[in-house]
Write a protein that binds this DNA or RNA. Structure first.
Lengths: 327, 327
DNA sequence: GAGAGCTGTTAGAGCGCTCTAAAGACCGAG
DNA sequence: CTCGGTCTTTAGAGCGCTCTAACAGCTCTC
């Protein structure tokens, strides 16, 4: 910067003003500075800028694992908007362990990110409270009323209702559910399923098969269901990956979908739309979730304010794995 | 830091030594400093540290799009190792546009990342040359002999040979190829396919259907093949997504896989292993590619040295979409 | 033509660290 | 007791920027 100032025969301060595109710089000098900068191949040092201005123009994102498309798609939404707005993304993965998650968060805080987006965090509420005291925070996919942060959620109850409406609309009554265990959304979907079945006077047909959001859980669930004398006419999987497992399990047993059993997933991850899978499912707008999370975060960075809850509506995507019941 | 020094009754310099875990600090003082730091909730400022030490302990990763599982999995590999080694990840996406890619790179350079990993970059060789002059660079999935950077590649020719060996081993001769256009790996796979067919005296049966690494390309290719009087007995898709499109297209036309036609993909992205898809394919070790890229980068950061080329071997994964030819 | 009120420019302190060089503490050897 | 050597600690100068306050040079008003 020193060199640019000398080259353009102005003060360092003026170079700074030009680089930050501040008003009240005469056109003549602005050009002289810009020209000198490009002649010298000057590249501003964001570290120094951050140190002096106490603003890094970076945001941190912490998620479970990039290899899980659900998380990658949320990160994709954040990235897209961030780069448009000139923010830089610092990424950390927690690998489903609260411990690693906290370490990743600490690392981000050392870099003085302007804000943090936590996607389905596993850490305890106490740790989240501590974090909120240090940095603007947006939590995606998990709600904690005790914490004054922003939350981005989809309406799991509504999504589950859409599932049940769709299936009962087709005439299904014996609807089983493969649940997702304690991961984000799992308990809510199970509870909403049980509530919905009861409300429809289908409680006697309700059946929850324990799972954990993995394909194997789906495969196992298919085997378990096949052991019974009579298959349910429809199965509601807690996510698409479980549904894919079910699809495979039934396929191998010669059970056709949707002729003998309907299958519906949740999330609408990219595999769901593949023509060959063509899974009926509930769409969670992952990219939007990421984008909205960042919007809230930046707003929070600008003006500290009470936490906000953004509830997004999931939608039903009907494809080929559901149809009317047979028998 | 000032406060910690005062609290522990030592100099700032000593606090710095302790925080960096340098040797030659007496046990007594080290503990006094550590205790003072935790009492004050001191968190080192990585920006200031980076500014003073001229090392940021961050690496930049630039890829097309996080929503593409192939890229997300490579990034996942980088992230995993980075967090183990105490490096922070700055992420940028180029969205398949050379222009955006360059902007993302510039942004990373302002943050003075210690090194950059470029995954299947689209920018011109000239821009890469310029980048290499400024920062240690590792390029994944693209080779440019004129550039003195590190490269991580898989052996596309070998992978394609594995495909042809597998198919001809099953007895196939009429093997078509749906190609990937100009994206990374596409031209290499097509060329190797044509070479391999010729070497096996199957050149008359060689047939390339133009595509572009998308599912639609696969669907269209299926339609095109179905218009012919006679189907090939096997189709080699330039990647798994194309293969999925083929699968769907044939499925809808009532053509069974692998009974009437075998299908083989490339990449082994996560959908490929799903029981219901069960795609025979070539595995590219994405996570390792990311990890190795980072290893090379860090090594390059330590000691500047001539560029290195790391060629990884792809492997064949036989699942259910290939079988012997019929008719 | 003096003062107020602009706009455009600058000096210089400071952001929170690292790093070099030098000083201080402590040891055994002479 | 002094000296050289090793180990530990410290002062202080940066790292490359921003930001405040002040200043210079205007125009406008009365």
């Amino acid at each position: 910067m020193e060199d640019v100032a000398r080259e353009a025969k102005v003060s360092r301060a003026l170079v700074s003003l030009v680089m930050r595109e501040q008003p009240n710089v005469s056109e003549a000098r602005r050009e002289r500075v810009l020209e000198a900068a490009s002649r010298l191949g000057y590249r501003p040092n964001a570290m120094a800028r951050s140190l002096a201005s106490r603003r890094t123009r970076t945001v941190g994102v912490i998620l479970d694992d990039l290899r899980n498309p659900f998380f990658a798609e949320i990160a994709g939404g954040v990235e897209e908007l961030a780069s448009d707005l000139g923010y830089q993304l610092l990424l950390g993965a927690g690998g489903r362990q609260a411990q690693r998650e906290r370490m990743a968060l600490n690392a981000l805080l050392e870099y003085r990110v302007d804000g943090v987006i936590l996607v389905s965090p596993r850490m305890t509420a106490a740790h989240l409270v501590a974090a909120v005291a240090e940095v603007p925070l947006v939590v995606v996919g998990r709600l904690l009323r005790s914490i004054d942060a922003d939350f981005v959620l989809t309406d799991e109850a509504h999504g589950t209702e859409l599932v049940l409406e769709h299936l009962t609309g087709l005439g299904h009554e014996r609807i089983a559910h493969v649940d997702g265990g304690r991961g984000a959304g799992g308990p809510q979907r199970r509870a909403a399923y049980l509530r919905g079945m009861k409300a429809r006077r289908l409680a006697p047909y309700a059946r929850v098969i324990p799972g954990d959001f993995t394909e194997e859980a789906g495969t196992r669930a298919a085997q378990e269901l096949l052991r019974d004398s009579r298959l349910p006419t429809a199965v509601f999987a807690a996510n698409d990956v479980i549904a894919a497992g079910l699809l495979g399990g039934f396929d191998r047993a010669g059970v056709t979908v949707p002729d003998q059993v309907s299958i519906i997933g949740y999330d609408n991850i990219s595999i769901a739309h593949l023509a060959h899978v063509s899974l009926t499912t509930i769409d969670q707008p992952r990219t939007s979730m990421g984008r909205i999370a960042l919007e809230l975060l930046l707003d929070q960075i600008e003006h500290r304010r009470p936490g906000v809850l953004r509830l997004l509506e999931p939608t039903l995507v009907v494809r080929s794995t559901t149809g009317p019941p047979r028998g």
